Simulated assay, not measured.
Amino acid sequence: MIKIINHKQMGKSERGWLHSIFHFSFAEYYNPKNIHFGVIRVINDDIIDAQSGFPTHPHQNMEIISYVVKGTLSHQDSMGNMKELTRGQVQYMSAGKGVTHSEYNLKDDPLRILQIWILPDKEGYEPNYGDYNFNWDERVGKWLEIVSSTKGNAPIKIHQDINVFVTELKEGESISYKLEEGRQAYLVQIEGQGSINGVLIDEKDGVEIQDESMITLKAITQSHTILFDMREN
């Protein structure tokens, strides 16, 4: 089953400096039928205006991934980490027993990031931070695995049975992905327009994928996509 979630029908928030689309219930957007998909609790598509951002705030018992789409993300946390990340780079923070951090756009251009929260396989882990500077070309025309479980092979490993891939396709190019038995997936069309198993997907749309053994993406325009492969509910 392929279910397209049109981004125009998603939750939204406008806070002056922050412009957000919520794939799942978050902040002022609450839909009891749309709390999560599998172990994904949050996917927020955030645009942060220049010289603004999130001041220091706490997190606990959540695996947090930030994927930079455009601009520069400046991170600082209570574990002593300070980092700037740019397009295509990935930051990971296991909040575990508790951590505080800030995220800012200190540049003069807008910053677009995907803020992703994944439920951990248990609570109470020691807080941890990591980031990775992926070469952009590693995702062009192929799947680049950016996140896996602690037993997986990705450079960034989290406390959950989930694999995260990204790809960029040229106009007219196609790529397939096999879902093993007992697995489901969620996909975000980050940039561009494409189709999945022949069904049109627009920029910023989400896709729930269940009871499918194979999916095929085709780029209608140049296309940038992220895919989450996880156990079924």
Rank of each mutant, 00 (worst) to 15 (best):
Y177S: 08
G124F: 10
Y30A: 12
Q189P: 01
I4Q: 08
K122P: 11
L200T: 14
E171T: 06
H224Q: 04
N233K: 13
G152K: 03
D131K: 04
P58T: 12
R231F: 13
D77H: 03
T167L: 04
I118S: 01
N44K: 06
K151L: 11
M10Q: 05
F54R: 10
G192I: 09
E84M: 12
Y177C: 13
R231L: 04
I43F: 11
E171G: 02
Q60K: 15
K157H: 00
Q189A: 05
D45F: 13
T167G: 07
S66W: 01
K142M: 03
A27F: 06
D131E: 10
K12V: 08
T72A: 06
Y125A: 14
T56D: 13
E126Q: 15
Q193Y: 08
R87C: 02
F228Q: 05
I47H: 01
G80Y: 14
H224F: 06
G88P: 12
F37Q: 11
M93W: 09
G182C: 11
Y29W: 08
N135L: 15
A95P: 10
L85G: 00
D229F: 09
S148G: 12
G80R: 13
Q91N: 01
H75V: 06
I116Q: 06
E191H: 03
W136T: 14
W17C: 00
K3I: 05
D229R: 04
Q89F: 14
Q51S: 01
F54P: 04
S74K: 10
V90N: 04
R183I: 10
T86K: 15
K157Y: 00
N105T: 05
G96H: 09
I40K: 07
E168G: 07
L144F: 07
L111Y: 04
Q91T: 10
D211K: 14
F26N: 03
G124D: 11
W17T: 01
E181N: 09
W117V: 00
E168N: 06
H159I: 07
S223V: 01
F165Y: 15
L114I: 04
N133Y: 08
